[in-house]
């Protein structure tokens, strides 16, 4: 009986951890992950370029990102949580390193006022 309880408790804990990992995390991790703008560019062309056109350089379905004055945490949380009816939440799909790489890519975009 005790063994069953231990197994059950462990399973519950694991389930809770997995569930927590699957949900969008509204705040960034304490230790910033390394950012890689080239990796961010690849990720952007995989998932983001459908709406943020010309790689985020001009407005399209989504807003222009080049030269944005939004702070880092705002952009990271927008990617994690999305926007109801406008942008998917990627908090379940991207890890912290990928999020930081996307941010590095956005910051690397030149704002040529197009």
């Amino acid at each position: 009986m005790r063994r069953i309880l231990i197994v059950s408790t462990a399973a519950t804990l694991i389930a809770a951890v997995v569930s927590a990992q699957q949900r969008p995390q509204p705040q960034s991790a304490a230790v910033p992950a390394p950012a890689d703008a080239a990796e961010g560019a690849r990720l952007f062309a995989t998932t983001c370029g459908f709406c943020h056109q010309d790689g985020g350089r001009v407005a399209g379905r989504g807003p222009k990102l080049a030269g944005t004055d939004r702070p880092d945490e705002y952009l990271l949380n927008r990617i994690r949580l999305g926007k109801d009816g406008a942008m998917p939440a990627y908090g379940r799909a991207f890890n912290e390193a990928q999020l930081r790489s996307l941010l590095a890519y956005i910051r690397s975009l030149k704002d040529d006022a197009r």
Binding site: Q22, A41, R42, L43, F44, A45, T46, T47, G49, F50, Q53, D54, G55, G56, V58, G60, P88, Y90, R92, A93, F94, Q98
Partner: peptide
């Protein structure tokens, strides 16, 4: 652009380009 899909779970799209209408 060369891309690699993000799986498990999928990060929605696998486009492979940036574009402008």
């Amino acid at each position: 652009i060369k891309t690699t899909p993000v799986l498990e779970p999928q990060a929605q799209l696998d486009i492979g380009a940036n574009f402008t209408l």
